[in-house]
Design a protein around this nucleic acid. Structure first.
Lengths: 114, 114
DNA sequence: GGCACTCATGCGCATCTGCGCATGTGTCGA
DNA sequence: TCGACACATGCGCAGATGCGCATGAGTGCC
């Protein structure tokens, strides 16, 4: 089995969590400390801390201590580019489904999900 | 929590498996039936069938019966585009690591992982 | 109909994951 | 040095996942 395939699967597994995606989207707006992140996505501090540890060990985010706080940021914007591309695919798929098999209002609803 | 985020996490979870990535890379070369797939990636037929069922229910692959065989194919090449993009990120990261912190031969080794 | 072939599915097991909770670690100010 | 604050980590449990294995379901040929 290809080594880079295994590596890719590990990165994908790291990304394959709604909470972690939420964290990443928040970090895409700029660096942020843990407690603020927990506040923004309505999760507990230990929970966010655990997810950040996972993201960090995968090399997706980076941490920097600032006094008592620890500020996290994305290490590589390209990962989010890939995510955005995938989001685009999903969005178009939703729109297509809406156009094909639903009433106008349901389609509008689906489009609005974004 | 954003609905499209949850959907995205589900798709990512579906992709986050070395075996399934292997299957997808094989299907990227063209449609293929189950037993041939199992042969190509050296896995059991039930195993491949299960993975294909997962990929299918996620809408990533499509099945078409042809006599006794069932031919699978990618439904949306864009998904593989996103995968390729991510692969590129990983590849560049490996190369960077090789250049920065290793001897020339180790770097060559890392690059060769492809 | 019977048989061979291709694929799908159900089952049991070992393993992993995410979460809440309590607690440990590091840092600052008094 | 002690307390308060921000964050990290360990633990236990419930739920999900992947695998091998045996078996069921659909199809074509005799």
């Amino acid at each position: 089995m290809d080594e880079i395939t295994i590596l890719q699967a590990e990165v994908l597994k790291t990304l394959a969590s709604p909470r972690r995606l939420e964290i990443l989207h928040r970090l895409a707006e700029g660096p942020c400390e843990v407690s603020r992140l927990a506040d923004d996505i309505a999760a507990s501090q230990p929970n966010v801390s655990q997810h950040l540890a996972v993201l960090r060990s995968a090399g997706i985010v980076d941490a920097e201590r600032d006094g008592r706080e620890v500020r996290y940021r994305l290490t590589d914007p390209d990962v989010m580019v890939a995510c955005a591309l995938m989001r685009g695919v999903l969005q178009r798929r939703l729109e297509r489904l809406g156009r094909l098999s639903a009433t106008d209002q349901t389609a509008a609803q689906l489009v609005e999900i974004q």
